[in-house]
Design a protein around this nucleic acid. Structure first.
Lengths: 162, 162
DNA sequence: CAAAATAGGGATACCATGTATCCTTAATTG
DNA sequence: CAATTAAGGATACATGGTATCCCTATTTTG
């Protein structure tokens, strides 16, 4: 069970968009070059973000993407669910119902205890992702990334942002 | 990103094995019938449990599986990792290294901040699964399952346990 | 001793899904 | 009008999950 690579791509793209000045847009082409990714396929991930309402888009030259909310209001969970879907990672097939000792037509009153435990773990994962905002990520990156590369990348992006 | 159905199967099988009296074994055939699963394919899941050392096996008629440890010492995480593997659910492809603004041959000092956040969430998931033991599950099931079905299933299993 | 039942594991086939590319369309900019 | 962009459909390919079949070594039962 491994998350799609599109999740990683979308997270990195949002990290860049979170640093973009208000009102500016960055194109798929620029985001693909910056991360060394196939433009056409990255486009699918960005479309997922758009459909989820996480980013705003404009057409035409100088068009592209910007965040639809403030970085402090955008969480990792938002992005992960936009790309990966919001369904649970554990699907209960209710195989307890196949027990031959059950009377025919017996109906379970509650959910399967095993599924509940798996779903609680799933929820712990989501809670951790929900706590992580792109505002916090921005602060961390600013501290960790080499200052020259940080500034150089910022210039590179601004030169291409419409 | 969805867990294999074999995870669900393995969890249900361990729940049954946890209720088995000491020294008794239950076969793949019985476990498959009890859960309405394809015997040959369920066998692969049980082999994973065996290779991980979670269950003990014997051959011949009256052979099968039993838990290798006390139910209180067996966790959901043990079973999930035995079937699904112990690798992280998020794989970092280090795409930050593709940034064209980087000097050639630049070497990152630490791990990618985005990957770290994803891995922390992954660890929260594992922590929740690590807390869930099959002893606790047994208590829950005993409270929740219809008493008639509970007793009937126990008889059914004992009749087939070697 | 012989027969039956078992776990283990290899080979194979099928299908769903992730990955990737190409193309068309509509909207926007200059 | 010409260039550029997001959106989305169609297609192809690789990978991995699902499932079945078969063979072997081992052990219990009759």
């Amino acid at each position: 069970m491994i998350l799609k690579s599109q999740v990683e791509w979308a997270l990195h793209c949002c990290a860049i968009l979170a640093g973009l000045p208000d009102g500016r847009y960055l194109s798929t082409k620029a985001l693909a070059e910056l991360h060394g990714l196939p433009k056409e396929y990255l486009s699918k991930a960005l479309q997922s973000l758009s459909q989820a309402g996480l980013v705003h888009t404009t057409l035409g030259p100088s068009g592209g993407y910007r965040l639809a909310r403030a970085p402090a209001e955008l969480t990792f969970l938002d992005v992960v669910e936009a790309v990966e879907g919001s369904g649970r990672t554990f699907v209960c097939q209710n195989i307890r119902a196949n027990n031959p000792c059950r009377p025919k037509g017996f109906c379970d009153s509650g959910s399967c205890a095993i599924a509940r435990i798996m779903w609680e773990a799933d929820e712990a994962w989501r809670t951790a992702l929900r706590k992580a905002t792109f505002a916090d990520l921005g602060k961390t990156l600013e501290q960790e990334i080499d200052p020259g590369i940080w500034a150089g990348t910022f210039d590179w992006v601004l030169k291409r942002a419409g």
